[in-house]
Design a protein around this nucleic acid. Structure first.
Lengths: 177, 177
DNA sequence: TATTGTTATACTCTATAACTATA
DNA sequence: TATAGTTATAGAGTATAACAATA
């Protein structure tokens, strides 16, 4: 049986992932003020620059946001002159998101800032361990992406786990005191 | 100068942290259906069980949420009989959050489920590397927590970085088409 | 019929500020 | 005066569903 005395929030992987993620977003927010949509706008820009944004829905899924949110995001990036939409010649339902010259220039500055953020977050690591750590994080993220669409994560954990939690309306009860 | 062709969203640390964090939250959501507040309610419960929740404000800060949100969260946990509030005898402004027996039992089940989630997320790693990786993540999170309250993260990165982004009202412009 | 993108709407969640109590 | 907690409110962010275009 578990011993609560030996436990601590500090040893919780989920908690620590949250800490790092929030720290990253916060730092990113500080360096993307000229990019609409904040850190996520930056990620869309990265995808556009890298030619990985040929389909809004797929990109939205990859970034963990709704496709309708992606519409607003790309609207704003387009209005800022950082990207343009173009119908995919092969399937005209799809919109390809392409970076403009200005988008590329903006990306370049933001990209440098984000590498500096990386360095700050990973600062405590011995320099020699950084590439391996980054690689590990990337590998784990890849695997999780490959598995999660099937919701296999929760099968493993519990039969009760109906992973697509449908926003229980009673979750925050109307307070009556 | 950077070469966009060699870049990819997959190599972005922030992106990968987001992927892992979202995957963790999603899996956690699947196993905390009996805990009000979802994954964060669970984290409050962990803190209560571990005796690390002597002050709502401090805990809220640690979990990255607003103190007013913490009030609602603890309200719901208390209503579910998982924790109780008690005024701190040493400073009666503070409320200590203590786990009940029921809270402890609920925590025990949830804790096991979360260790299973950990195992799933970290599955791709060689078993022997897991403890070191967990330790690294914890160390990084500790350091980031020690630095971020001072916003030194962004000083390092850019002079422009006023980290406490005050919710630019023009960020999502009212769409007029 | 299924899917992409869009739009409007409704809802959830969060931040803000005012208030009480303690210090 | 300053801080912890609470509360109500306003606002930002998100999901939902319907629609048009394309497959």
């Amino acid at each position: 049986m578990d011993d609560a005395a030996e436990q601590s929030l500090s040893h919780d992987l989920g908690f620590n992932l949250g800490v790092l993620f929030r720290a990253y977003v916060k730092a990113s927010n500080g360096v993307v003020r000229d990019i609409p949509g904040g850190p996520r706008g930056y990620q869309v820009l990265v995808a556009a620059v890298c030619g990985e944004a040929g389909n809004q829905s797929a990109l939205a899924k990859r970034l963990g946001i709704d496709r309708s949110v992606m519409t607003y995001l790309v609207d704003d990036l387009e209005a800022a002159g950082l990207v343009v939409r173009r119908p995919d010649p092969d399937d005209r339902r799809n919109r390809q998101i392409l970076a403009t010259d200005r988008g590329r220039a903006t990306w370049e500055r933001a990209e440098q800032d984000h590498r500096a953020i990386d360095a700050h977050i990973l600062g405590p690591l011995p320099e020699a361990d950084v590439p391996a750590f980054r690689d590990t994080i990337e590998r784990l993220a890849e695997r999780v992406n490959a598995l999660d669409p099937l919701d296999s994560a929760c099968e493993v954990v519990s039969d009760l786990a109906a992973a697509a939690v449908p926003a229980d309306p009673a979750r925050r009860a109307p307070r009556t005191r």
